[in-house]
């Protein structure tokens, strides 16, 4: 049988997942202003995945999508690092040039979101990669321990039931 928790747990999960994901995205996007960053925010987003797996026992069939997102995050990180290879790898070529990520900060300030140059973009890339990677690890391990039912069997039985 498919693992599923009680209605109370599922309802509370529905309410909690959105704030958890938003908090993770906040940590990722404000990595250059406040404590946190790509790794921590990605772990927070992955904890929302853990909550969904435990409450519902399934997440559909998006395993390959998660793999692709993870690879895209890592490739984005490496390409941003290589873009500054004119001087050195990981050179912050966007800092202070104006525009979207090129704002300038000086001395004591309240913190502006459009500063940081490549640091902000790298936080975003690492956040994408870590959230997808930890979700994938949780997914595979929960499936192996039997919390999640194998996808193929459920789909077959469901289709048979529908046909009958």
């Amino acid at each position: 049988m498919n693992w599923k928790m009680s209605r109370i747990v599922r309802t509370v999960t529905d309410f909690l997942v959105v704030p958890i994901v938003i908090f993770g995205i906040y940590l990722i996007l404000h990595g250059h202003l406040t404590p946190g960053g790509g790794f921590q925010g990605g772990a927070v987003v992955a904890s929302a995945t853990a909550l969904l797996i435990i409450a519902y026992g399934t997440l559909g069939r998006h395993k390959k999508d998660l793999s692709t997102i993870e690879a895209i995050g890592l490739i984005l990180f490496i390409s941003i690092a290589l873009l500054g290879i004119g001087s050195t790898m990981f050179y912050n070529f966007l800092a202070g040039t104006g525009g979207m990520f090129g704002g300038t900060v000086e001395g004591i300030n309240s913190g502006y979101i459009n500063t940081g140059g490549t640091v902000t973009l790298m936080n975003l890339a690492v956040g994408i990669e870590v959230s997808a990677a930890l979700s994938l690890i949780l997914w595979m391990m929960s499936k192996e321990t039997g919390i999640m039912k194998p996808e193929k069997k459920t789909s077959k039985t469901e289709s048979k039931e529908v046909e009958n």
Binding site: N92, A95, G116, M122, E129, L136
Partner: peptide
């Protein structure tokens, strides 16, 4: 770097190769 957070500046600019290694370790773990 125009960054207020010195820890993030060290992580993603001055010691960027170390962070690249961390991300690669996570990828290979998956």
């Amino acid at each position: 770097n125009q960054v207020n957070n010195v820890v993030t500046a060290v992580l993603f600019d001055y010691r960027g190769l170390d962070t690249l290694g961390e991300a690669t370790i996570l990828f290979s773990a998956v």
